[in-house]
């Protein structure tokens, strides 16, 4: 790959509307993109080489460590969805004022990364903001329940 390409690929990873974190086996942070910086308020310089769970204390440590460990072990991508853990990182939503939801709903993908020696040396954690989808789905479930209740009531009457 050309060096130029590498430069703009870094630009994309830095500025995309998804969170990107890379950790090693000791959960030390090696990449922390702009999305993570801006939403967490933790600067890249402050978190580089620091332990993820020390630097971000309100993570659900045991659960998330397991997810990361299994990505290392299985050498295949792992996923977490908002239905199991709605807020991995406690970020505010993109609409803090006109919105009605406090925290961002998140899905994540954990991708094992191989070093030159073909060993999995790092895991990339990709955070997706799925607030809108989650809110809509929850609304739909609620509406369906209401509808089902009405039908039941009508049936038993």
């Amino acid at each position: 790959m050309k060096l130029d390409n590498l430069y703009w690929i870094m630009g994309i990873l830095q500025n995309m509307a998804n969170g990107l974190v890379v950790v090693d086996r000791e959960y030390r942070v090696h990449m922390w993109n702009k999305f993570m910086e801006n939403h967490s308020g933790i600067a890249l310089e402050a978190i580089t080489d620091a332990n993820l769970f020390t630097a971000v204390p309100n993570l659900e440590e045991q659960w998330f460590k397991q997810k990361i460990d299994s990505a290392f072990l299985l050498d295949s991508p792992g996923y977490t969805i908002w239905e199991e853990r709605p807020h991995i990182f406690k970020f505010e939503t993109a609409r803090p004022i006109t919105g009605h939801i406090k925290y961002m709903y998140q899905n994540s993908t954990l991708m094992p990364l191989k070093a030159v020696d073909a060993e999995v040396s790092h895991v990339a954690i990709l955070i997706n903001d799925v607030t809108a989808i989650a809110v809509n789905k929850m609304g739909l479930i609620k509406a369906n329940q209401k509808l089902a209740n009405r039908v039941n009531q009508a049936g038993s009457a």
Partner: peptide, 15 residues
């Protein structure tokens, strides 16, 4: 139309 923005704790929306 509304667009959220955030950086280092400075957070808001542009309408």
């Amino acid at each position: 139309v509304c667009q959220g923005f955030t950086s280092q704790g400075i957070t808001g929306e542009a309408l």
